Simulated assay, not measured.
Amino acid sequence: MNDKLFDAIRNGDVEMVKAIITAHPELINIKDQRGSTPLLLATYYGNQDMAEAMLKHKPDLNAKDASGNTALMGVCFKGYAAIAKLLIDHGADVNAKNLNSATALIYAATFAQSEIAQLLIDNGADTGHVDEKGNTAYDHAKMQGAEKLMAILESK
């Protein structure tokens, strides 16, 4: 059943995912071979409808994949602002750290996602946090030449 669930997520089959999770709610936090939970994978693929369906079953919003990334981190580098807001509204930790000590804000800065960065900051993201290389979100924005994002981060 695990493979069927992950296949349905990868194929974007929202109705199949809903059916499986409803029949087997214990699967909401299982992990695939890469350490991704159903929610992490659905959000990574940008499937907001699927994520919303899963949230009704109270998944672990801060579960981490094999690299220590959360669903919120994944949507920050992919640029899925609406899903980032959905996850934050449901209680995702905006300051969770992965294995490189990167946060969702550092990912948003690295990929010049100004809207998501502002959302994270508005919800308590630590703008002064440094990753394992000693860089803050501002440093990452500067490396990308993301002037709008640099201005947002400078004002905090």
Rank of each mutant, 00 (worst) to 15 (best):
A92S: 15
L120C: 08
Q48H: 08
L87S: 08
P59N: 09
V75K: 00
D131P: 02
L27P: 05
I152C: 03
V17G: 03
T127D: 13
I30G: 04
D60M: 10
K85T: 02
A42F: 03
D7V: 12
L87T: 01
S155E: 12
K58Y: 03
L39W: 08
A42G: 05
G134N: 10
N2C: 12
Y138R: 12
V75S: 00
T103L: 06
A81G: 02
A42N: 00
A112S: 14
P38S: 13
D13G: 08
T136C: 07
K18D: 04
M54Y: 09
L40C: 10
T110Y: 07
K97G: 03
I88L: 05
K4P: 02
N123F: 05
P25T: 07
K142C: 08
N11S: 15
L120Y: 07
T103D: 05
M16P: 02
K18S: 02
L41M: 13
A108V: 08
A146D: 04
N47A: 10
V14C: 12
D139Y: 06
D89F: 05
L72I: 07
L27D: 03
N62Q: 13
A71P: 02
D60H: 10
P38A: 10
G68C: 05
T22F: 10
D131K: 07
D60T: 08
L5I: 07
R10F: 06
N135K: 14
I88Q: 03
D93Q: 04
Y107C: 12
A151P: 01
A102I: 06
V14G: 04
K4W: 08
I83V: 05
I9A: 08
N69M: 14
S101H: 13
Y45D: 04
L120E: 08
N11G: 05
T127C: 12
L61T: 02
S36Q: 14
T110V: 11
A82S: 11
Y80K: 00
K31A: 12
V130Y: 01
D60Q: 11
N29Q: 04
G145Q: 09
M1F: 12
Y45F: 14
A102T: 03
E132S: 14
I106P: 00
A92W: 04
Q144A: 15
I88T: 01
K56F: 00
K133C: 08
K78Q: 13
Y80D: 00
L105N: 04
Q113R: 15
F111P: 03
D60V: 03
